[in-house]
Every structure is written in structure tokens, then in C-alpha cells.
Computed example of a mutant assay.
Amino acid sequence: MTKSQAIKHFGSISALAKALNVTYEAVRQWEVVPELRQYQIERITQGTLKASQHDAAA
């Protein structure tokens, strides 16, 4: 998911931050949504937003 998708779903950066129990500034500083936060958002939204799948090859 992108940062803008998450913000759009929650309606604002403030609402997204509150749902994740983090500060507005923490969310604002993301260039991309951190992977663990993506899974947290997926769970909070009951799968409406999906975490991006990355190859774990290495």
C-alpha cells in the first residue's frame, strides 16, 4: 500500500496516526509505509488495505 492510500482510507494523517497510536510527525516523515506498519494497517482495516508483498529472497 502507499502512504497516500492509507491516508485516504483514514481521512487524514492525524486519523491514521491515531489508529496506529503514533504521532502525526511519525506518519508525515514516512516516504513509504514501513512494512510492519503495513501489516498493522491491513489488520486494522480488516484487509481493505493490503500490505505490499516483497520477495524475501536473499
Rank of each mutant, 00 (worst) to 15 (best):
A17W: 05
N21P: 02
A56L: 14
Q40H: 09
Y24F: 11
E25V: 08
E25L: 13
V32H: 12
Q53E: 14
P34V: 00
A57N: 15
A56Y: 15
H9P: 05
A58C: 15
A26K: 06
A26G: 06
L16N: 02
V22K: 00
Q46N: 03
G47D: 01
G11C: 07
H54G: 13
I7K: 05
T2P: 14
Y39R: 08
E35L: 13
L20K: 02
S4G: 14
T2N: 15
K50V: 04
T45D: 03
L16T: 01
Q29P: 04
S4V: 13
I41W: 00
R28N: 12
A57T: 15
K18C: 06
V27E: 02
A51M: 05
I13R: 09
I41Q: 01
K50S: 08
E25P: 12
A57L: 15
A15P: 09
A19T: 01
A6W: 04
S12D: 12
A51G: 03
Y24P: 05
W30V: 01
V32I: 08
A58N: 13
T2Y: 15
K50P: 10
Q46G: 00
Y39K: 10
E31M: 07
Y24E: 09
V32G: 09
M1H: 13
L20P: 02
E25C: 08
A56N: 15
E42S: 00
F10R: 00
Q38A: 08
H9V: 02
G47I: 00
T45W: 03
A19R: 00
Y39I: 08
V32Y: 11
K3F: 14
A58Q: 15
T45C: 06
K8R: 12
K3C: 12
V33T: 04
Y24S: 06
T48L: 05
G47K: 00
A51P: 03
I7Y: 11
A26I: 06
K50C: 07
A56T: 15
S52E: 13
H54Q: 15
I13K: 11
K3R: 13
S4L: 12
V22C: 03
E35M: 05
E25R: 09
Q46W: 01
S52Y: 14
Q38C: 06
E35R: 05
V27D: 07
K18D: 09
R37D: 05
R28M: 10
K18R: 09
S12E: 10
M1N: 09
H9I: 03
S52C: 14
M1C: 11
Q46Y: 00
S14E: 07
L36V: 08
G11F: 04
E35Q: 10
T45L: 04
S4W: 13
F10P: 07
T2W: 14
E35K: 08
S12G: 02
G11P: 08
Y39F: 12
S52Q: 13
S12A: 07
E31C: 09
V32E: 08
P34R: 03
H9K: 09
A19I: 00
Q53D: 15
T45Y: 04
L36T: 09
Q5M: 11
A17D: 06
H54I: 14
I13E: 10
R43K: 10
Y39D: 12
T45N: 03
F10V: 02
A15I: 07
S52I: 12
A15N: 07
Q29M: 09
H54K: 14
L20R: 00
P34Y: 05
K50A: 02
L20Y: 05
Y24A: 09
Q29G: 12
G47Q: 01
W30R: 03
V33G: 04
F10W: 09
E25F: 12
